[in-house]
Design a protein around this nucleic acid. Structure first.
Length: 896
DNA sequence: GCGGACTGCTTACCT
DNA sequence: ACAGGTAAGCAGTCCGCG
């Protein structure tokens, strides 16, 4: 019998659109006419996964407190529904300790502990000391007995009881007691979030798709030649996780508006004292609903919304909220922008205030998050706030994480600007505003062929985390999670952070920057001037490569074996194990190889179909996000496998590699113009020389050194991290130059852009001389305009600087933007960390003013001219031009 | 009391 | 709440100065 292809699943789901639940959906629609008791959402029984459930994606795992077991959420792509499956294997939470069972049994506080289940003796591999140890597994009836109770869970009680008596010879140890129970469940059962499962005889059973499996084999085989053989099993695991396609994920975006008596105040969701007056639901099938609360004295306004929008009026707020709740139960995925903090939080408390019973509220409120009982809630605010996502997945396209700015950057759409407070809006205006928010929220998950949803799925797979968690947590948690998973898979003890520090010590090099822990990368002093024909070479993911090739990890750096101590890391006193492969090295190394050798090339492979290429591009971006952070986490205290010597060794080897490579290049007679961390800028190298250098790197260093790009020419001053390069197609890379920085006044930026444009047209050294004259002219023009105070809009002179903390928190110094911020605050404008302050330079104390308060007369022209000078000097230096000479001419001219 | 040399703080950037 | 290195500008401090 032929299996359906996964694409067929997905297509089918689109066609049938998940309309299997017509009954409850209609019930929700008919609410208005019902006088009866509320129709509740789907009953839980309807959501229990039946036997032989069609292949379904495991999207979430949690703990059901009332049943005292773990549960999983399975997303069935044909019906587009979520099914729940509760654990029936008897898995229980536990911790590990070095206190023997007999000792534990002697103490009533432990032996009689209410939540205690039983003790076991287990063996674990202790990677820090390369030995197998016997530890006690303390098994509990519920997760709170292990950790998290304010009064003292077992993880606190055990050290408390034994530290006095036991502490003389050996320290009391408790391990693995701070892992969330549902993560523990994922690890122990080897579950793969984001992958396919079915239910067989009541058991949660992985589902393998033959065609995809064959594909996995093919890819692994293809890559097996140049992968170290011990990494092959890792490669295969990753490839399987990445190759299974993503389903179509039916979802609704929700946005609510709340009445507010004070126009400038957003009502506090914890109090929820004001009514919900509007809600919008926009779903992935294009359905759009606006739910409005009827209120006294509200104008109708223009209620002519597009024909695909359904407007529903509710006499009672309770009915309106009930209607929202029904939808929340229906959709497998619910999308919000800041729903954790506001929308769902507000609805939760508002429903409670209105007397909803617990079972009528589908929202499960945590400390800082809001989850849903039968769906997966994705709060896009949390996801887009993630720095790694912001930088590496979206290339810094947005800066501030607001719905408006993210939507502008990614979709080219924006929020509707309101001229009146919510309380004064007509139904029509309110509906339009709210609907627009829900629409762009939805679109943030659907643009680029559901990029964001696919990214979340892939990240859930790699990290082994529920989709809810992966969307809310940072990259260090993702990395920790897949590393913990691997510990459990290999029956390795997960060390405590202090165990790693105690066993491996700290760093031995001195950082260049005060306050940093160890020395980082090398930046080569550039050769100033204009250089034609520059080849930029770089090492493909240098740090992950080093971790792979040099076997770095907490287990291997400064290992316990005498015989490894001669395997030294350059410039340090650290050595690396020669006997065992570090877990980090295996996991990160295999991920790196996959990205470099498979997913990145495939994402650009024109012989593939567009949607396949797109899918591979999602995968390679996800890998990029993780790989980019993989070295950093070693050196981050907040990372649970923090290992400073491992981070230091990575950077030290990196310095060694770039240094050796520069030396080799020079030996080959190539001029190295510049280099930073993992890159080399080579002047006019012949293809043969490039090849030779690359082969040398491969052979001697075991590193892949490739051409990244060619610059027609590049402009360097003496400054590091500061250059301009013109590519063959005339596009320009500007790196680090002040004229491009975010905070610079638009007036200066505009002239900088003109110069950039002039430079982009230069093709030959000859053309350069003409360009120079043009540049001089532009600078003169800019200077004259300033001198004559002809800047037009004063806003164009504003510096835009972001507050790193609230204005009051600057105690050591008061920078200029803070001075301006304080002036605004005096006027009753509240400011917080992350707000951008727009200010101009003025002639009188304190020499700054927020633009809003400044007039053109008080502008300090000389200050701006000195900024002009320093900004353009970065380019003029390289062109052998002098700012003063250029503008001096004009002064002469003016006197003549 | 004031200017110059210096250090420190802060932001924005690069890899 | 991944790392360190660099540029730039301003704030604040110290020291010398008969």
């Amino acid at each position: 019998m032929r299996q359906k292809t996964l694409e067929e699943f997905c297509k089918q789901s689109v066609e049938r659109g998940g309309y299997e639940n017509k009954i409850s959906e209609n019930a929700a629609l008919e609410l208005e006419d019902e006088d009866e008791a509320y129709v509740t959402g789907i009953s839980e029984a309807a959501n229990i996964a039946p036997d032989n459930l069609p292949p379904s994606y495991l999207v979430s795992v949690g703990y059901d407190g009332s049943r005292g077991v773990a549960y999983v959420k399975l997303f069935e792509p044909t019906s587009q529904r979520i099914y729940l499956w509760h654990d029936n294997t008897g898995h229980k939470p536990y911790l590990l300790t070095n206190i023997p069972v007999e000792e534990l049994k002697k103490v009533d506080r432990i032996a009689q502990y209410p939540g205690l289940d039983h003790f076991e003796v287990v063996e674990k591999y202790d990677a820090l000391f390369d030995r197998v140890i016997r530890v006690t597994k303390v098994v509990a009836k519920d997760p709170l007995a292990i950790g998290g109770k304010p009064k003292g869970s077992l993880r606190d009680v055990i050290p408390e009881v034994f530290s006095a008596t036991f502490g003389k010879n050996e320290e009391v140890k408790v391990w693995e007691a701070s892992i969330k129970y549902y993560q523990c469940y994922i690890y122990d059962r080897g579950l793969q979030p984001g992958m396919l499962y079915t239910i067989k005889g009541g058991e949660l059973t992985p589902y393998f798709h033959e065609e995809t499996e064959r594909n996995v084999d093919k890819i692994v085989k293809h890559l097996s030649e140049d992968t170290p053989s011990d990494l092959l099993p890792y490669l295969e695991t990753w490839v399987r996780l990445l190759e299974y396609p993503a389903p179509k994920m039916r979802r609704a975006a929700l946005d609510i508006e709340v009445y507010s008596p004070v126009a400038t105040r957003v009502p506090d969701p914890e109090e929820a004292s004001q009514p919900v007056i509007c809600a919008s639901l926009v779903d992935s099938d294009g359905r759009k609903r606006v739910l409005l609360l009827k209120r006294e004295g509200v104008e109708e306004g223009d209620l002519n919304l597009p024909p695909d929008v359904t407007i529903e009026f509710y006499d009672s707020e309770k009915d309106l909220i009930k209607s929202i709740f029904n939808a929340l139960d229906e959709y497998p995925f619910v999308i919000t922008f800041n729903g954790d903090d506001f929308d769902l939080n507000y609805l939760y408390h508002r429903a409670k205030n209105l007397g909803f019973s617990k079972s009528d509220i589908p929202i499960e409120k945590g400390q800082k998050i809001c989850l849903l009982r039968y769906s997966v809630h994705i709060d896009l605010y949390r996801f887009f706030l993630n720095k790694s996502i912001q930088i590496y997945a979206f290339g810094q396209k947005y800066r501030n994480v607001t719905l408006d700015e993210v939507a502008r950057a990614l979709l080219g759409k924006s929020k509707i600007t309101l001229t009146k407070p919510f309380s004064e809006l007509s139904y029509g205006d309110l509906a339009r505003y709210c609907l627009n928010d829900a629409k762009i929220t939805m679109e943030l998950t659907s643009y680029n062929n559901d990029l964001v949803m696919k990214l979340l799925l892939i990240l859930a797979r790699i990290s082994r985390m529920p989709m809810e968690d992966v969307s809310r947590q940072g990259v260090s948690k993702w990395i920790r999670s897949f590393m913990y998973y691997e510990h459990r898979r290999r029956n390795m003890l997960i060390p405590n952070s202090e165990d790693i520090i105690a066993a491996r010590g700290t760093t031995v090099t001195k950082a260049i920057i005060k306050g940093k822990k160890y020395m980082g990368a090398i930046v080569v002093k550039p050769v100033p001037g204009v250089h034609f024909n520059i080849a930029v070479m770089d090492f493909q993911s240098l740090y992950p490569s080093i971790i792979k090739v040099y076997n770095l990890g907490y287990q291997t750096v400064r290992c316990v074996h005498e015989e490894c101590k001669d395997n030294l890391v350059p410039e340090t006193t650290h050595w690396v194990c020669k006997k065992h492969r570090a877990l980090e090295s295996a996991l990160i190394g295999s991920l790196r190889d996959l990205r470099v050798k498979w997913y990145k090339p495939k994402s650009k492979d024109k012989s593939l179909q567009a949607d396949q290429r797109e899918w591979y591009n999602v995968i390679q971006s996800a890998l990029k996000v993780i790989l980019n952070a993989s070295y950093g986490v070693f050196g981050a205290e907040i990372f649970d496998l923090y290992c400073p010597p491992a981070a230091e060794a990575t950077a030290a080897i990196g310095r060694n590699i770039i240094t050796l490579t520069i030396r080799k290049a020079r030996e080959l007679g190539i001029d190295v113009i510049y280099g930073d961390t993992d890159s080399l800028f080579l002047k006019n190298p012949s293809p043969e020389k490039i090849k030779e250098l690359s082969e040398w790197a491969e052979k001697v260093l075991g590193m892949e050194l490739d051409i990244d790009k060619y610059y027609r020419y590049a402009v360097f001053s003496y400054r590091k991290k500061n250059y301009l390069g013109v590519l063959d197609d005339g596009s320009v890379d500007v790196k680090g130059l002040t004229g491009k920085k975010r905070h610079m006044p638009l007036f200066i930026k505009r002239y900088f852009d003109i110069i950039e444009d002039i430079l982009s047209r230069v093709k030959t050294p000859g053309e350069f001389e003409i360009a120079k004259k043009d540049i001089e002219g532009i600078i003169r023009e800019c200077y004259t305009k300033l001198k004559n105070r002809e800047w037009g809009d004063i806003n164009d002179l504003a510096f835009e600087v972001v507050l790193g903390k609230p204005p009051e928190a600057y105690t050591k110094t008061t920078p200029q933007h803070v001075k301006a911020a304080l002036m605004l605050q005096v006027r009753g404008i509240e400011l917080k960390a992350g707000d951008t302050i727009r200010f101009v330079k003025t002639i009188r104390e304190p020499f700054v003013k927020p633009v809003q308060l400044a007039s053109s007369k008080e502008i300090d022209v000389d200050k701006y001219i000195s900024y002009l000078r320093s900004t353009f000097d970065q380019i003029l230096d390289a062109l052998n031009l002098e700012f003063d000479e250029i503008v001096g001419l004009t002064r002469l001219e003016r006197f003549m």
